[in-house]
Design a protein around this nucleic acid. Structure first.
Lengths: 206, 206
DNA sequence: TGCGTTTTGGTTCAGTCGTTCTAAAATACA
DNA sequence: TGTATTTTAGAACGACTGAACCAAAACGCA
């Protein structure tokens, strides 16, 4: 009943993601969105509500299609492979990101999340999802001995989450292969160390 | 010759930093700046140029007073203490950041640097300064045996820089003590491990 | 066929943006 | 004191913002 839509919602969301992703929330105007999505202002407004609601939909669309997809792809691998593949993916993406869009989730975390509880919750939930993926992989790796038990799985997964965020920030400013690969190389090495870290600073175990 | 200024430049820059820091570049209007700095639009414009130039001055002011100061304070310590104190400082700042301003340098790295070569260079230079501080500490620590030589000092300092960025991002969304402390605990543990990381995944050195 | 519902394309709105302008006020130097 | 120079204060500029409005068009269903 009523006139059917002439546009595909997913296609419109893809275009909206691209706008918000590359320019940020504030810097993206409704007219930008009108131009890139192809549909008119009225259509945008009665299909998605206001600009903020559209950003919210676009963010969810991005998270599901980008991060969720990556997690699903890695989850079937062995623990070490999963973590390595996840970071390998992120690294490749960051280095091929010629127009420096970065990660839309990280951008949101700094642009709109601090001033908006709803978005903060949404970003936190997405981050928690990644953290849970890391935690699952590490627990599994600790169980089969492929990942160090020198530190708690919780600390290690928190650390990996932090490193992941850091990569996305560095890549926006210095998208250099040696830099980003250096960051992850140490992180992955951390997972492989055996035994306890040294408690003393003297040279006692030569 | 001419009428002397009624305002102190540093005081104005402090206020400008506060504006840009908490609201970001785009979201901060000239009228905000006029209100918070106390001086009028005309004064702002003929003292600093335009909005962009003022942000640039404010950023330099922030970097020197915040990051530069921290580096200077830590540089006199022993290698391990220096790194630990640096992260301890960052952690305390992040957890006491009730209005979630984060780090202005990181904010700039994502807000304006990607679209502005000048700012990208400025941010990159500031990051390089932090990286150099880490590298110096680690080289010194490797020399006196207090820091692992299992990985190159370059990789380790890159890693620490990444972790630092990550903390600043996470703190904007999830300023939880356990989370942030977990991130740095693993990073600091990495510096202390002895010997080579395990190359194999079997359980061979029990 | 005709009614009800929804989308569509433009237009318009009130407000805000960064910036500039004019003129008065305030000082230093001659 | 007079003049040159700079800073002040406030109004004003055009452009753009997110949002709302409108009649016309396009369908599903009775």
């Amino acid at each position: 009943m009523g006139r059917p839509r002439e546009f595909d919602e997913d296609t419109v969301l893809d275009a909206a993601v691209l706008c918000f992703w590359s320019r940020g929330y504030e810097a993206t105007s409704i007219r930008d969105l009108i131009e890139k999505t192809g549909l008119t202002g009225a259509s945008l407004y009665n299909a998605f509500g206001d600009k903020r609601a559209l950003y919210r939909r676009a963010l969810d669309h991005y998270v599901e299609g980008s991060i969720g997809e990556r997690i699903r792809r890695c989850e079937s691998m062995s623990p070490c492979e999963a973590v390595e593949a996840f970071f390998g993916d992120t690294l490749k993406r960051s280095l091929n990101d010629l127009d420096r869009k970065g990660c839309m989730l990280v951008n949101t975390a700094l642009d709109v999340a601090p001033h908006d509880p709803d978005f903060r919750e949404a970003v936190a939930a997405a981050l928690a999802r990644v953290e849970a993926f890391f935690l699952g992989s590490i627990l599994q790796g600790q169980a089969d001995g492929s990942i160090t038990s020198a530190q708690t799985a919780e600390d290690l997964s928190r650390h990996l989450l932090g490193v992941l965020m850091g990569i996305r920030v560095l890549a926006r400013v210095r998208p250099e292969k040696v830099l980003l690969e250096g960051v992850v190389r140490s992180a992955l090495a951390l997972l492989k160390f055996r035994g306890q870290p040294a408690k003393f600073t003297g040279q006692d175990d030569r």
